[in-house]
Amino acid sequence: MTAMVKAEGVHKSYGAAHILKGIDLEVAPREVFCLIGPSGSGKSTFLRCINHLEKINGGKLYVDGDLVGYRQKGDKLYELKDSEVAAQRRDIGMVFQRFNLFPHMTAIENVMEAPVMVKGESKAVARERAIRLLDRVGLGDKGNNYPSMLSGGQQQRVAIARALAMEPKLMLFDEPTSALDPELVGDVLDVMRDLAESGMTMIVVTHEMGFAREVGDNLVFMDGGVVVESGHPREVLGNPQHDRTKAFLSKVL
């Protein structure tokens, strides 16, 4: 079985700042893969490389067997055109820390936008799915609200529905609960747990250790742009082997 995501020695730097210093990992289909680590460790950057929001400077990154952002012919790499990159991203859903809902569209319109524009779906079909997805994330009655009229937790759930509308094979979560008030975190995590149970492949950058322990199939601790430790969440969180992991966990647990 091909890995859903495979990273081979991925490097990324912004000018002189070397953010990722050779990341190797594999995410199997239907797996919930958690990335933890201190801020500045490169976990969000790595996540953004997977759907080519950031260009990598070295190594190789595959999603479902396809090279991200490039085409390989023989041993030469060719950059993909903007439209080809856009096509690659269709199958990868992403949820952002700050939701990034489109503020000039209602919740339903947010969810309908990509299927209509990208897949050329009819509005009727897209609307029907949008209503079903909003229902699934517990916001069936909020479809006509603009994002500014929704709480943070509600906005994030709309954002999840928006990503699911493209029927992705992989979902990326970039600290989805970090911008939320504590009492709103639970609702979002419930939706994510439900999604994990439905068999979605998920890569989750998170500080929610409880969620990682309960739902995660695999966990990676990153620090300073490298993978320090990886394994089953219960193993890594319960019995960390590296000093850096121990130090980090003692602060957050």
């Binding site: 096509a87 991203r89 269709r90 990034n100 489109f102 990208v118 954002a159 990503a163």
Partner: peptide, 8 residues
């Protein structure tokens, strides 16, 4: 970014 991530 959100729009690009959706494949637009």
């Amino acid at each position: 970014e959100a729009s690009h991530a959706l494949g637009m």
